[in-house]
Computed example of a mutant assay.
Amino acid sequence: MAYNSHRALVLFSGGQDSTVCLAHALSRYTHVETVGFDYGQRHAVELECRQTVLDRLREAFPDWARKLGADHMLDLSGFGAISDTALTGQSEIVMLESGLPSTFVPGRNLVFFTYASALAYRRDLRVLVGGMCETDYSGYPDCRHETLEALERALRLGTEFDFAIETPLMWLSKAETWALADRLGGQPLVDLIIEHSHTCYRGDHQTRHDWGYGCGDCPACELRARGYREWHAARDTAGD
Rank of each mutant, 00 (worst) to 15 (best):
A2E: 13
A2K: 13
Y3P: 13
Y3N: 12
S5G: 14
H6C: 10
A8S: 08
A8F: 10
L9I: 03
V10W: 11
V10H: 10
L11D: 00
L11M: 05
L11Q: 07
F12A: 06
S13Q: 03
Q16N: 06
D17M: 07
D17H: 12
D17E: 06
S18K: 07
V20T: 10
L22W: 08
L22P: 05
A23I: 00
A23V: 01
L26I: 03
R28F: 01
R28A: 00
V32E: 00
V35H: 10
V35W: 06
D38K: 14
Y39N: 05
Y39Q: 03
R42K: 08
A44P: 02
V45T: 12
V45D: 12
E46C: 15
L47P: 07
C49S: 15
E59Q: 13
D63Q: 14
A65W: 03
R66N: 02
L68P: 06
M73H: 12
L76A: 10
L76N: 04
G78Q: 09
A81V: 04
A81H: 13
D84P: 01
D84Y: 13
T85L: 13
T85E: 03
L87N: 02
T88N: 11
T88M: 10
Q90N: 10
E92V: 04
I93C: 14
V94G: 09
L96F: 06
S98Q: 11
G99A: 12
L100P: 03
L100T: 05
P101Y: 02
S102M: 03
T103V: 01
F104R: 04
V105Y: 09
V105G: 09
L110N: 05
V111P: 09
F113Q: 03
F113Y: 11
Y115I: 14
A116R: 14
A116L: 02
R122L: 09
D124K: 14
D124T: 11
L125A: 11
R126E: 02
L128E: 00
G130M: 05
G130P: 01
G130W: 00
C133D: 01
E134M: 11
E134Y: 06
T135K: 06
T135W: 09
S138D: 01
C143G: 05
R144K: 05
R144A: 01
L148N: 10
E149D: 08
A150G: 05
L151I: 01
A154S: 13
A154Q: 05
A154N: 02
L157C: 12
L157W: 10
G158E: 00
G158N: 05
E160N: 11
F161V: 15
F161S: 14
I165A: 05
T167R: 13
L169Q: 02
L169C: 04
M170P: 08
M170T: 07
W171D: 06
W171K: 15
L172V: 10
S173T: 13
S173L: 08
A175G: 09
A179G: 12
A181E: 02
R183M: 07
R183D: 02
G185T: 02
Q187H: 12
L189R: 10
I193K: 08
H198Q: 15
C200M: 02
D204F: 14
H205K: 15
D210M: 11
W211V: 07
G212C: 08
G212I: 00
G214P: 13
G214Y: 08
C215H: 12
C215P: 08
G216F: 01
P219E: 01
A220I: 01
E222I: 15
L223F: 09
R224T: 00
R226V: 05
R229E: 01
E230V: 15
W231V: 10
A234V: 02
